[in-house]
């Protein structure tokens, strides 16, 4: 028995060496300053082949109705996987969606998805984009038929899952292998927090950090820079988008949206659920002087957040420390 298992171990390790001579093993790594993730790949074992397939599907424009739009069209890596310069998402047939595309990273820590928290699992979150007439405008049957008849997909499914069988579950699970692996935790802020050698805040950044902790962190809480709650920050007296109440049916949730992460905020303009602001200055001026007394306005904001010019500059300096260039430029996540 012992001999057998040793032999097996030997056989296995030998095999692995053969399959991946120099290819880097795809891993899901949890930064030291992050808590345990919600999604842990338990029912979706991470593999190089599964990740590669998910990435290919993510960048595959032929999945959409007019073959012009992929996930990557709206979720662009250089914009931390949001859609640069688009107030609201831009899909097939030049259709404009109703909400600003959220960035995609650290999704493995999210319990709910979308601005209103309507979607509850990372694996099922692409479904709305696939079927929405204004996003990719197609359906899963069509996608399955396309993949079954298009090389090299059957082969890629075989490499990832051991069979050329293609179904919605395998498509969604492989896409999740890609999206859940997107972790952004190597910003200057992270390195300072982890006390990595030689890295410290400049004095404006430090002043900004202290202001941020005092005025913003109650909602934009570290390490994700969101507490994942739904709130109104007083953008409109009466919101045109129901927001959270569309999901809960509760009037006190009307006009509330998920507190967005501020990681990589330098690259994710425009801002807010409808993309109404293009710059940090507009956002900070909103908190300083533009907060409207909407019915469900968060109590913390009833007097706005008064900020003078110096304070604004300091907060801006701090927000830029949340940029993770290693993430934005990581070729592992790029279309190849």
């Amino acid at each position: 028995m012992l001999f057998l298992s040793i032999a097996l171990m030997y056989a296995c390790s030998k095999n692995e060496d053969e399959v991946t001579p120099e290819e880097k093993k795809i891993t899901f790594s949890v930064p030291a300053n992050f808590p345990a993730p919600v999604y842990n790949f338990e029912d979706n074992k991470l593999s190089n082949a599964g990740f590669a397939l998910g990435k290919k599907l993510f960048y595959e424009a032929r999945l959409s109705a007019d073959k012009s739009v992929s996930c990557g069209s709206c979720h662009q890596q250089f914009a931390a996987f949001t859609q640069l310069d688009h107030k609201v998402s831009h899909g097939v047939n030049n259709c404009q969606g109703k909400r600003n595309t959220p960035p995609l990273f650290n999704l493995a820590w999210q319990k709910a998805f979308f601005w209103d928290g309507g979607v509850k699992n990372i694996e099922t979150s692409p479904l709305n984009a696939i079927t929405d007439a204004c996003e990719m405008g197609t359906d899963i049957q069509t996608i399955i038929a396309f993949l079954k008849n298009t090389a090299p997909y059957p082969e890629l499914f075989k490499q990832a899952y051991g069979s050329t069988e293609i179904n919605s579950q395998l498509i969604l699970k492989s896409i999740a292998q890609f999206t859940a692996v997107l972790v952004s935790g190597n910003s200057k802020y992270d390195k300072v927090m982890r006390k990595e050698s030689g890295i410290s805040f400049t004095s404006p950044e430090l002043a900004g950090y202290n202001l941020f902790k005092e005025k913003c962190a109650s909602c934009h809480a570290a390490p994700f820079f969101t507490d994942f709650s739904y709130r109104s920050n007083g953008l409109d007296l009466v919101s045109t988008d129901e927001g959270r109440s569309h999901i809960t049916g509760v009037a006190s949730d009307f006009g509330k949206f998920r507190v967005p992460t501020l990681r990589n905020i330098e690259y994710t303009s425009p801002y807010m659920h409808d993309g109404r602001f293009y710059s940090f200055d507009e956002v900070l001026e909103h908190y300083n002087s533009g907060v409207k007394a909407s019915t469900n306005l968060d109590v913390q904001l009833k007097n706005g957040i008064p900020l003078n010019t110096t304070e604004k500059e300091q907060i801006k300096a701090f927000l830029k420390t949340l940029t993770d260039n290693e993430f934005i430029k990581n070729t592992l996540y790029s279309e190849s």
Binding site: G118, I140, N167, Q169, I171
Partner: peptide, 18 residues
């Protein structure tokens, strides 16, 4: 997460926005 069989979203019985 993603399901198969009777629960496959392909059956048109799964809401994608909620």
């Amino acid at each position: 997460g993603a399901q198969t069989g009777a629960l496959d979203p392909i059956n048109g019985m799964f809401w994608t926005w909620n």
